[in-house]
Amino acid sequence: MKVNDMILQTVTTLLSFIILIFSVYLFFAGHYTPGGGFIGGLMTSSALVLILLAFDLKTFKKIFPINFLTVAATGLLISILTGVAALFFDVPYLTHTFDYVELPILGETALTSTLIFDLGVYLVVVGVAMTIIQTIGESE
């Protein structure tokens, strides 16, 4: 019997974007309010899981032609490099700094190097979660 998933697929195309925007918000809100790289990464992977549920693994690989293990490795590399970068300024490993920068649209914004470290955490969480789910889904 062929099943028509029209309602689920239409809702997914709309809702996955909302969840992705929410995950980006959680990622950037992590410095002053609840949020951060870990929960942002989990929300991104749940949006991707929703796409996986409504469509199939073949379609998913066509939309995202990336190996998620590479994503996890890139995140780990970014996190380590932000730690190593502190050594070039004669401060201990993983020392973070911040500064107020005048940005074009946002105005005065506090930019920290912790955000880059958090980006690494985010990529590791997305990569590991999606690798686990894809590997389990693939096996017959």
Binding site: D5, L53, F55, L57, T59, I136, G137
Partner: peptide, 14 residues
């Protein structure tokens, strides 16, 4: 719901 309907949650080719 997808598990109840189809028996598998993530299918390879629908």
């Amino acid at each position: 719901s997808k598990f109840l309907q189809k028996g598998e949650i993530i299918e390879y080719d629908r």
